[in-house]
Nucleic acid binder design. Structure first.
Lengths: 131, 131, 131, 131
DNA sequence: GTGGTCTAGACCACT
DNA sequence: GTGGTCTAGACCACG
C-alpha cells in the first residue's frame, strides 16, 4: 500500500492533498531525500485518480522546491526531512494564528483556547493546571 | 453600508460566507433578534450577487434555526445573540481541536502551540504562564 | 380574538387554510348557520393578511355552498353544522384511505397501522388489546 | 424506462418527489446499496426537468445520508434498504398520527377510523376484530 | 462526462 | 415587493 493518501470527499483540492501528503511523508522520513517519487502514471493508478491531477501536484511540489523533475527519468526528492518539516511547521503556525485570531474575535479567552487545544496533546497538558 | 460582507476572492463558498457573516453580526448584536433580515433581492443587489445565492444562504440559516422566512413577508431573525455565539464557539472549538491535532501530529508541542497562539490574544498571554 | 386561525409557516395555501378553518368552526357550532361571516376587510385585518386572500377563500366557500355573498350586505353562512361536518368527514376519510394505502405500500400491517393511530384517540384504544 | 418517477401536476415539490422516489426504490431493492445513482444530467434528461432540480434532490439525499456524491465520479448509494425503509416508516407513522389526530378532532371514533383504513389493506381486515 | 456553485431570469402565492 | 421553486446555461475541478 502506498504512503500517499487522499480523501475524495474533502473539499480541499485533490492536488493540494497530494502535495501536503507528500511533504508530510518526507517530513516523517517515509519518503527520502534523493529517492524517486512514484511516476505520475503509477501514482494516478494507485490512488485511482486522473494523471492530470498528479501532474498538477508534482508541478506544485517542484515549484516549492520539494522535488525536481528530470525528463525521462522521473521526479526526485530534493528536500530533506528537516526542510519540509520546517515548511509544515510554518504552515501550521499560520493556521494556529488564524484560528487563534478567530477565537479571540469570538470572545474566546486565551485560557479557554489552550484548554480546548490541550485535549489534542496527549502529554497531560489537557488544561488541568487551570482547574 | 450594509453589515453583511463577502469576499468573492475567497475560496469559501459565497453562500457560506453570507451564513457566517449573518451569524457573526447577530452574535455582535448588530443584527437583532425579532428584526427582519434584508430581503433576498435587496441583499443580492447590495452585495452585487445573484438572488439565488442569497436564497441559498437564507435557506441554510433557516435550516440552522437562525432565521425564519415567511413568503411575501420577509425573513425574521429568531435566534438571539447568545445562541448564535454558542454555535460560533462550538465551530471554533472544533477548529481549534483540529489544528491542535495537526500541530501535535507535526511534532509541535503544547507549549509552542500556545505560544504561537498567544500573539493573537492581546493581553500579553504569550504562553509564559504555562511553562 | 377571532375563531378563524391560520399559520403562515405552513405550506398549505393560506386561502385553503381559511376555507378549512371556517368549515371547522361551522362544524363545531362556533359559526352559526344564517349568521354573517366577518367582512373580507375585517377578517383580513384581524388575521393580518391581504384582503385578496380572504376574498379568494370566500369565493371558494361560496363555490362549495358553505356561504353565500350578498352584494353590499356581506357573506351569510348557508350550510349547517351537520353538512360541513359531513364534508369534513369525507375529506378526512379520504386522507385516512390515502395514508393507509401509503402504509400498506410501505409494508406496514393493518394492526401496526391501528396501533400507531390509537395514541391519537384518548379512549383507551391505544393498541393495548394487541399485546 | 427509469425507476424514478415524478408527476409535474402534483403540488408536491419536484425535488421532494425525486427524494421520495429514490428512497422508495432503495427500500424496494430496485436501487441497490453501493451502486451508482444516474448522473445529475442523465436523470434530468430522462425526467425532462432541469439539472438544478435533480441537484437539489441529490443534495437533500446526501444530507439525509442516503447517497454520497463525489465530484467527477458520481453519486453512490450508501444507505441500505432497511435503513431507508425505517426512515419511510417513521415518516408514514407521523402521517398516521397526524390524520388520526385530525379524525379524533372531527369526532371520528377509533373504530370508524380503523374501518375506513381497513379497505386499503387487502386481507379482509376491515376493522371487524376491533369491535 | 461528473458533481457543485453561481448567474440570470421566469412564475407562483401572497403583501 | 417578498420568499420559494424552477429553468437555462455558465464555469470550475476532476475523470
Amino acid at each position: 500500500m502506498g504512503v500517499i493518501s487522499i480523501d475524495l470527499r474533502k473539499r480541499q483540492l485533490i492536488y493540494e492533498q497530494i502535495v501536503e501528503s507528500v511533504k508530510e511523508q518526507i517530513g516523517r522520513g517515509v519518503l527520502l531525500e534523493n529517492s524517486y517519487m512514484p511516476s505520475v502514471r503509477a501514482l494516478a493508478n494507485e490512488l485511482g485518480i486522473n494523471p492530470n491531477t498528479i501532474q498538477k501536484a508534482y508541478t506544485e511540489l517542484e515549484r516549492q522546491g520539494v522535488i525536481q523533475s528530470v525528463s525521462g527519468r522521473g521526479s526526485i526528492i530534493v528536500a530533506n526531512a528537516d526542510t519540509v518539516r520546517g515548511m509544515r511547521h510554518e504552515q501550521i503556525n499560520a493556521a494556529i494564528r488564524k484560528v487563534a485570531a478567530d477565537a479571540a474575535d469570538a470572545g474566546i479567552g486565551y485560557e479557554d483556547f489552550c484548554r480546548e487545544a490541550g485535549t489534542a496533546f496527549g502529554t497531560g497538558n489537557d488544561g488541568k493546571e487551570k482547574s
